[in-house]
Design a protein around this nucleic acid. Structure first.
Lengths: 237, 237
DNA sequence: GAGTGGTCTAGACCACCCG
DNA sequence: GGGTGGTCTAGACCACTCG
């Protein structure tokens, strides 16, 4: 079991700081030679460290050491940039597209509206210290936010909701599962197709209990750690 | 990109029901031949479907089609068996070990006690329809539960807490991250070493706000989907 | 005991990234 | 344009599972 030995060595180098967060590893060929093995076996070790969130790769660019994950609390309405700042991290949000569309079969179900209801549809990529870590898709009920695109919607939707429409999030329904990245999303995150990912789906309600929008967040799985507190519910048998 | 084609075909067979949940796939050699490729490439496709939670494997036993994940709401105090039953699933809990120990550096931090505090330490494996899906480790403050082992602690700790000690969970602090399975845990879950996993860590408080125990839950990542509702918190800037 | 999955070797070609 | 990562071939051995 050579690849386990390789993993141990790499983990040790990470933990002793010989390899630092965000640092690029040597090329696969060089490492394979250094460990006296083939690329196939080396990649077995690297892939396994990727699954453990110790290494990540950028498509065709190489392997890097994972920085600490961002703590994410679904109860906080904070925008991404603020959330990162409070943890001493530097964050940026970038627009991929913003358009107006009509609800399809899938989105009408997500937002509990009839098909062809007017919606805003936007996609953004968020960066942590220059590294793209989440691809966020939003579907927003247009009826509550006339002319949304006249305001800033890239950095923080929640702020715009509040300032221009007096709407604030009150409750959120969220679902967390694991998937992997493909196509446009993988590309936007500079991830290799098939990289492990965490999917956070949220449906958000305002102070009047109205369903106002939903998010699909595709996180590079090493970049996030969900952390929250919940009051427990008594369930009758 | 042969392995993508292979994936597509397998996904289609799963979605059309040609391959059913829990069904075993043919051997790797047979599939490699059927797709006119080598085992290495075939395994690339299978590994990728494993990351997407469409296939899972049992160590040295082969590849299987993933059944639907169990929905898991951290707010519910329900024991595992009840939770599964409410979703029409059949569940069983099995004891791995139960012992009394003293807090170590790691566990004293988890439970916010001084080192050498008396603790119960138990490990269980939980099955969904015969399949082991979670490995649960518990650390419990012994001071609140004298002679815990005289009662049933395998099927449901929460029930025993309530009935014999008048203690019920009120609040939980939880953290969700991705890792992978190794050693004893992988073995108990019949998983190949290095399989992707979801780690749920919980710290639980009773009706008096006392920290009473904590859980480390190692889930086969395809077997769980975390789903909950949260009231949002206003955060001053 | 036959066949399986887990691991490994020693190559190869290509498209892409970066200097 | 050199070197890289992504993909693929055609084998091999071993320990284990299962009938």
């Amino acid at each position: 079991m050579q690849y386990l030995k390789i993993k141990e060595i790499l983990v040790e180098q990470i933990e002793t700081g010989l390899l630092q967060a965000r640092q690029k590893l040597p090329s696969e060929r060089k490492m394979a030679e250094a460990f006296s093995t083939t690329r196939v076996t080396l990649r077995e070790a690297l892939g396994s460290l990727e699954a453990e969130a110790r290494l990540y790769r950028e498509d065709r660019r190489g392997w890097f050491v994972c920085p600490k994950p961002l703590r994410y609390d679904p109860r906080l309405t904070l925008n991404f940039v603020e959330m990162a700042k409070q943890q001493g991290r530097e964050a940026v949000s970038e627009l991929i597209f913003a358009k107006q569309t009509l609800a399809t079969k899938k989105t009408s179900k997500l937002l509990q509206v009839t098909m062809l209801t007017e919606l805003y549809h936007l996609a953004r990529v968020r960066y942590l210290e220059q590294r793209p870590v989440v691809y966020v898709v939003n579907y927003i009920k247009a009826e509550y936010f006339k002319n949304l695109f006249d305001h800033d919607y890239v950095q923080s939707l929640t702020t715009t909701y509040q300032q221009h429409y007096s709407v604030s999030y009150q409750r959120t329904h969220y679902r967390v599962s694991t998937t992997s990245l493909f196509g446009d999303i993988a590309q936007a995150l500079r991830a290799t197709s098939g990289s492990p990912a965490m999917l956070v789906e949220r449906t958000n309600y305002d102070q009047q209990g109205r369903l106002i929008d939903c998010d699909l967040e595709y996180w590079r799985h090493d970049a996030i750690c969900i952390e929250s507190v919940a009051e427990l519910i008594e369930v009758p048998n």
